[in-house]
Deep mutational scan, measured.
Amino acid sequence: TFEVERIVRKKIVHGNTSYLVKWKNYSSKDNTWETEDDIRTKYGDLVDDFEK
Rank of each mutant, 00 (worst) to 15 (best):
D37W: 11
R9V: 06
K29W: 13
V47L: 14
R6G: 07
T41G: 12
E3G: 06
G44E: 08
R6P: 03
I12D: 05
V21C: 04
S18V: 15
F50W: 10
E36D: 05
K10H: 04
S28Q: 09
L20G: 02
S28N: 13
Y19G: 00
D38A: 14
H14R: 11
W33V: 00
T17Q: 03
D48G: 05
D49M: 14
T1F: 12
D49E: 15
K52H: 10
G15F: 04
Y19Q: 01
K29M: 12
K10Y: 05
R9P: 01
T35W: 11
W33Y: 04
V8R: 01
T35E: 11
W33D: 00
S27T: 12
R9S: 13
T32Q: 02
E5S: 03
Y43P: 01
G15M: 03
I39H: 01
T41S: 13
I39S: 03
I12N: 06
N25Y: 09
F2R: 15
L20S: 01
S27C: 09
S27Q: 10
K11S: 07
D45H: 14
D30T: 07
E3C: 08
K10E: 01
D37E: 14
D38N: 12
N31C: 15
K52V: 08
V13Q: 08
V4P: 13
K52P: 03
S18H: 15
D48N: 14
E34V: 15
D49T: 10
T1M: 13
E3W: 05
E3Q: 13
I12P: 01
Y43I: 04
V8I: 14
F50G: 01
W33T: 01
I39C: 07
G15W: 02
G15S: 04
K11H: 06
D38M: 12
K22W: 03
I12T: 12
D30F: 15
K10S: 06
E3K: 05
D37Y: 12
K11Q: 08
K52G: 08
T41E: 13
D48A: 12
N16S: 12
Y43M: 03
R6L: 13
V21N: 00
T35M: 09
K42S: 08
N16G: 07
I12M: 07
R9M: 13
K29Y: 10
E34S: 04
D30Y: 15
I12A: 06
K11P: 01
L20N: 03
F2P: 15
F50C: 03
E36A: 11
W33K: 00
K52Y: 08
E34P: 03
Y43F: 12
T17L: 09
D48R: 12
T1I: 13
S18D: 02
K52D: 09
T35G: 06
N31S: 09
E36T: 03
K52I: 09
E36S: 09
R9Q: 11
K42C: 12
K10T: 05
I12L: 07
S27M: 10
G44W: 12
E5M: 05
D37G: 12
S27G: 12
F2V: 11
T32K: 03
R40M: 10
S28D: 14
Y19A: 00
Y19E: 00
K42N: 11
K24G: 03
R40G: 04
K22D: 01
V21L: 02
R6K: 14
I7P: 01
V21D: 00
K52S: 10
V47A: 07
D45C: 08
K11R: 13
V13A: 08
S28H: 14
G44K: 13
L46T: 06
Y43E: 03
K22C: 03
R40N: 06
T17V: 15
V4E: 02
F2L: 14
T35Y: 08
E5A: 04
R9F: 08
W23G: 00
K42V: 08
S28F: 11
Y43V: 04
K24F: 07
R6D: 07
R9A: 15
N16C: 13
N31T: 09
T17A: 10
K42R: 11
D45P: 11
K29T: 13
E51P: 02
W23V: 00
H14V: 05
R40K: 10
D49G: 07
K42F: 10
F50I: 02
F2D: 12
S28M: 12
I39W: 01
N31D: 07
T35F: 09
E36G: 07
E51C: 06
K24C: 08
G15P: 00
V13T: 11
K42T: 09
D48M: 10
D45I: 10
V47G: 02
Y26M: 15
K24S: 05
E36R: 05
V8M: 08
D30H: 15
D48I: 09
E51S: 02
E34Q: 09
K24P: 03
K11T: 07
N16R: 13
K42Y: 12
Y19V: 01
K24A: 08
V4T: 01
K29A: 13
R6M: 14
T32R: 03
G15V: 02
T32Y: 02
E36I: 07
F50Y: 10
E51N: 08
F2H: 14
I7D: 01
K29L: 11
V4I: 14
E34W: 10
I12V: 13
S18F: 15
I7Q: 02
V8T: 03
D49Y: 12
E5D: 07
W23H: 03
K22I: 05
V21Q: 00
F50Q: 03
K22A: 06
S28E: 15
H14L: 09
G15D: 04
D37V: 11
T35K: 12
K22Y: 04
D49F: 09
S28Y: 13
D37N: 11
N31F: 14
